[in-house]
Amino acid sequence: MTYETTVIAMLKILHERLRQGHRTASYPSEAPVLPERFRGAPRIVPERCREGCGDCLDACPFGAIEGTAGGPRLDLGRCIFCGACAAACPHGVLEFSRDHRLAARRREDLLAGAEGHRLAYALDGEMRRLFGRSLKLRQVSAGGCNACEADLNVLNTLVFDLARFGIQFVASPRHADGLMVTGPVTENMRFALLESYAALPAPKLVIASGACAIAGGPFRGSPECHDGIGDLLPVDLYIPGCPPHPYTALDGLLRLLGRL
């Protein structure tokens, strides 16, 4: 390449760069605006519930809804946010909002009722001191369909710019502070997943990202899957969704680190 062509190529890049402009979102100072039809945190109004009606329970393909005295409770861990329950309810008891904030620290915190559910709280003490400003994660897909993986990769794009929060995906578990698992854990990936966890230096975190990793997702009950990582690893953060929206994942991570 001659000097001139190099300069022209560079000018073209700069021109396109100027034209397309700066696109990193102002999150978290500004709340993200998600599409009108996005299904996020459920809103449950039990007063509208009619006794003896189990339409929402029957509509859920994955048994994520439990009928209680205080109205339906939705397990955000099992939920794939298909919206079948909301569509089936003739009384408007249950609907999905555009609120992307879903992540929780404990499995039981994912049960959403009239009062919503308990959002993730921050790590405490030494763990927060160690990871609060710098968190390196190793991602392991254990039967994930590549939607969870793709929407985690998105966090590295300039829109989200994950690195500005001090969070990074790293190439080896030995370099990582935590394991971010996607997929229902296929039997064929169980060993590799446990080996990856063992390779992480302590203290270490485990994050279950997506309906599959939390409770098996669409493959709950498959004889070749483990219904998520719950029985295999100690989980520090659950990120619901099928797949979780990138903002849902980012929100969960920042809450874990006490940054939101």
């Binding site: 039967g143 997929g183 296929t186 064929n188 498959s222 070749e224 899957c225």
Partner: peptide, 10 residues
């Protein structure tokens, strides 16, 4: 084969 979830039999 690592991702085998047994879809066809499900």
């Amino acid at each position: 084969g690592y991702q085998h979830r047994d879809v066809e039999r499900l």
